[in-house]
Amino acid sequence: MTEKLFLEDAALRECTARIVEHRPAGIVLDRTVFYARSGGQPGDTGTMRWPGGEAAIGEALKGEDGVVVHPIEGEAPPVGAEVTVALDWARRHRHMRMHTTMHLLCSLTPGIGVTGGQIGAEKSRLDFNLPEPPPKEWWQERLNALVAEDHPVSFSSISEAELDANPGLVRTLSVQPPRSGGQVRLVRIGDEEKPVDLQPCGGTHVARTGEIGRVTVLKLESKGRQNRRISIGLED
């Protein structure tokens, strides 16, 4: 397993690591700041540096065995070599802002199932099982109010058994949260006693909602008899 440093500190922009394996899809490191594509969030991109060389890293991928695979352009040093990997921070930070906004969007629809979603640097979307949604102005006003309240974003974990006993924590109908070593990571927005949102998530997030900036609701679409898609963007 790759040590995923972003789970403890999503603000880390680079780290030193050791190459443990070369795979057809890319390089496996013992530790990384790169998030691998999963759960609707794109994988990170950036660079890998070592004495006398540098290579671009394409979108990080998730290996079947839980490792993070770093696709690179050109040749990399041999197994055992020490390298420094650095994120395309502007792109990653927008994904963090978007992902936290998606959780705020969920908080506005308590008890409503999420049927799909995708995070992007320029536009993101969530699909809800919501036949008669409010107009997009309603969503935009409430999202920006939650952003302006500058709620803290924190992390904790519960056991798989605790999650199974509280199925209402899982908002997504088609994707189950990641489980590792019998534990499930929870993302909390707001106070511990009365959070704005609390749900399992393995992605990267900002430290406070005020870091998101102004949110624009771009479109509200019908994607079936009950399925409604809400697309959002961020102002720079």
Rank of each mutant, 00 (worst) to 15 (best):
G120K: 03
L12S: 07
F34P: 03
H93T: 13
E82N: 03
Q41G: 11
D65E: 11
H103I: 13
E82P: 01
C106A: 15
D127E: 14
G117V: 06
D65K: 12
E21M: 07
H70T: 06
E122C: 09
A121M: 14
S107Q: 10
G46S: 02
T84M: 01
V85K: 00
T101M: 03
D9T: 09
G53W: 02
L108Q: 01
E73P: 11
P24H: 07
V114E: 07
R92L: 03
E64S: 14
G52V: 07
K62M: 14
P71V: 01
V85D: 00
A11R: 12
F128T: 02
T100H: 04
G113W: 14
A17V: 05
D30S: 11
M96H: 15
R91S: 11
L61N: 12
Q118W: 11
E59K: 12
T84L: 00
A60W: 04
M96W: 03
R18D: 06
G63A: 15
E73K: 11
V79T: 14
D30F: 02
R125S: 11
R92A: 04
S107C: 10
A10R: 00
A60C: 15
S38W: 07
L87E: 01
A10P: 14
T16F: 00
A56V: 15
T115E: 14
P71L: 01
P51H: 08
T100K: 06
A10E: 01
W89P: 10
A81M: 09
V68C: 07
C106G: 13
E75K: 12
V28G: 06
P71Q: 02
R31E: 09
H99R: 07
D65T: 07
E73L: 12
I72K: 09
H93I: 08
T16P: 00
G26M: 09
A10H: 05
C15A: 09
H70D: 08
D127N: 11
V85N: 00
P24K: 10
R49D: 10
G63D: 08
A25P: 12
V28I: 15
V83H: 01
I72H: 13
E14S: 02
I112F: 08
L104G: 14
D127K: 07
R37I: 12
V68S: 05
A76V: 03
T84C: 03
T47R: 04
A86I: 04
A55I: 05
G74R: 02
A25Y: 05
T84H: 00
A60N: 12
D44L: 08
G120C: 08
Q41W: 05
V79Y: 14
G74L: 02
G53K: 01
G46W: 00
R37E: 13
I119T: 11
Y35D: 09
R18Y: 02
V85W: 01
E82I: 01
I72W: 06
A90F: 10
D127Q: 10
G53C: 04
